[in-house]
């Protein structure tokens, strides 16, 4: 955690940015060609394959609507996403709150570091059976499982971010006798935001995984539960639609995250760019 990472800016990160130099039609072609080819391959091979587990894509798409839009959307998908959101929000509050406290005190940090390293290293899914003891298999358990797994990347990144706040800025704030709350709001949390966002991004994918796993383990409803039900009853096209839907949820949430992240970090990207341009 202490090594300086090779900086990987999100803007440059996606190869998509490199496409801007192309004219529009070439850009569309390069964006869509491979996905289209893959879908066509899937369509053709699954149409010919006579495998029970690999139903034709035609059937999968035909069952998608009836499977999900006739009741399951509100009965399974919405509760799943609600729990995901609740657990994630809980993890954010705890992670940023505790992380700021730990980051500001070097003694507390020294005291807690090995303990936190240990908790972070526990693979989050093993917490499901433990939390089931305390909370049964209800909604509370799932929210806590999601929070318990997602909190660590947020917490540890907040600690690092708060620690890394520019010392000159910190001294300046002290010299101007900024109040504690003002310092916290304008200096510490602001300065730590890029790291917190990084942690939040890692936490999101962990939260999605835990949402599914907690439902696969024990549940009455939810996406993970429904998909496993389909699998156990050998309802193949339905199971495939579930997998596709789960994939779409992952993709949509990561796009949403990027949309939210941009205004939060706009000053940071600007700063980086001017740093780079200045050199």
């Amino acid at each position: 955690m202490t090594t300086t990472q090779p900086a990987t800016a999100p803007a440059r990160a996606s190869g998509l940015a490199a496409l801007r130099r192309l004219p529009v039609w070439r850009r569309l072609l390069t964006l869509l060609a491979l996905p289209l080819i893959l879908v066509v391959i899937w369509w053709v091979t699954s149409d010919r394959a006579d495998s029970f587990f690999y139903p034709p894509l035609r059937d999968i798409l035909a069952t998608f609507g009836p499977t999900w839009f006739e009741g399951r959307l509100t009965a399974d998908v919405v509760p799943s996403l609600g729990r995901l959101l609740a657990g994630y929000a809980l993890a954010m509050v705890i992670g940023v709150g505790l992380g700021t406290a730990i980051g500001l005190s070097s003694r507390l940090r020294a005291f807690l570091e090995p303990v936190l390293e240990f908790f972070r290293a526990i693979p989050p899914p093993v917490m499901v059976p433990i939390l089931m003891l305390f909370l049964g298999i209800g909604t509370g358990m799932k929210i806590f499982v999601i929070a318990a797994g997602a909190v660590w990347p947020i917490l540890l990144n907040t600690v690092e971010g708060v620690r890394g706040v520019d010392e000159v800025l910190r001294d300046t704030a002290r010299t101007y006798r900024l109040g504690r709350l003002t310092q916290l709001r304008t200096l510490v949390l602001r300065g730590a935001t890029p790291q917190i966002v990084t942690g939040a991004r890692q936490a999101l994918s962990i939260a999605i995984i835990l949402m599914v796993i907690s439902e696969m383990f024990a549940a009455h409803n939810g996406l993970g539960f429904t998909i496993v039900q389909f699998q156990r009853s050998f309802a193949m096209p339905e199971m495939w639609t579930g997998i596709i839907l789960l994939g779409l949820v992952g993709v949509v949430l990561s796009v949403l995250f990027r949309i939210i992240e941009r205004p939060v970090l706009f000053w940071y990207h600007g700063q980086r760019q001017s740093h780079r341009g200045g050199n």
Binding site: S205, G250, L253
Partner: peptide, 15 residues
């Protein structure tokens, strides 16, 4: 491959 990678990467493996 850029668009395909961006799409496939966030799919949760547990799916």
């Amino acid at each position: 491959t850029a668009s395909t990678i961006e799409f496939l990467r966030p799919i949760p493996s547990v799916a």
